[in-house]
Computed example of a mutant assay.
Amino acid sequence: MRPLDHIDQQILSELKSNARISHADLGGKVNLSRNAVRVRIERLEREGFIKGYTIVTGAGDSDQNITTALMFVYRHDRMRGGDVLHALRKIPEVVACDVMTGDFDLLVRVEATEADRIRQIWQQISGMSGVRDTLTAFALSSVIRKDRPSERVIR
């Protein structure tokens, strides 16, 4: 894997600002042809500089609020509890999962438009064969939410 040159860095910067930009428009911004931009993006994906793409949704015209819950998950076996992680990856409302030290094993962040959906997810997680126990806390409000520059990867 070769290091990023200034054009690769420009391409990543532009994609972070607007992941939907066309190859032609991006090429105009970095002074390359549409095809040359496409080739560079494919290489950046292949080499892991671009790990994927995602959509971040907003409330749109509605006043839809997001309910956030943190679930502390205790597994039966910390070392061989991969089945729980695999199952968590399949739940769309699970937006983050961290393996922790200390008393509990996993910290799972769940975001849903309804508290009842979080209850359903809690039941699903609690019922997993590898889960020994859970503790759930609902967030009352979010006062600080940052994207760290080093983590602004287009997923």
Rank of each mutant, 00 (worst) to 15 (best):
P3H: 15
L4Y: 10
D5W: 12
D8T: 04
D8C: 01
Q9K: 15
Q10W: 11
L12V: 03
L12F: 02
E14C: 13
K16L: 02
N18A: 13
R20A: 15
I21W: 04
H23K: 01
L26G: 03
G27A: 03
G27K: 01
G28K: 10
N35L: 03
R40H: 04
R43W: 02
R43F: 02
R46I: 04
G48W: 07
G52P: 05
Y53W: 11
I55V: 14
I55Y: 11
V56E: 15
V56S: 11
G58M: 00
N65H: 09
I66N: 11
T68C: 07
A69E: 15
Y74W: 13
Y74L: 05
H76G: 08
R78K: 08
V84Y: 13
A87C: 07
L88F: 15
I91D: 07
E93A: 11
V94W: 14
V94C: 09
V94R: 08
A96F: 13
C97E: 12
M100Y: 07
M100F: 07
T101F: 13
G102L: 04
G102H: 12
D103P: 00
F104H: 14
L106E: 02
V110F: 09
D116V: 04
I118N: 15
Q120N: 03
S126N: 10
G127S: 15
T136N: 02
T136V: 14
A137D: 14
A137H: 15
A139Y: 13
S141G: 03
R145W: 01
K146Y: 01
K146M: 02
D147T: 09
D147V: 04
R148V: 03
S150W: 07
V153P: 00
V153D: 14
V153Q: 11
I154L: 12
I154M: 06
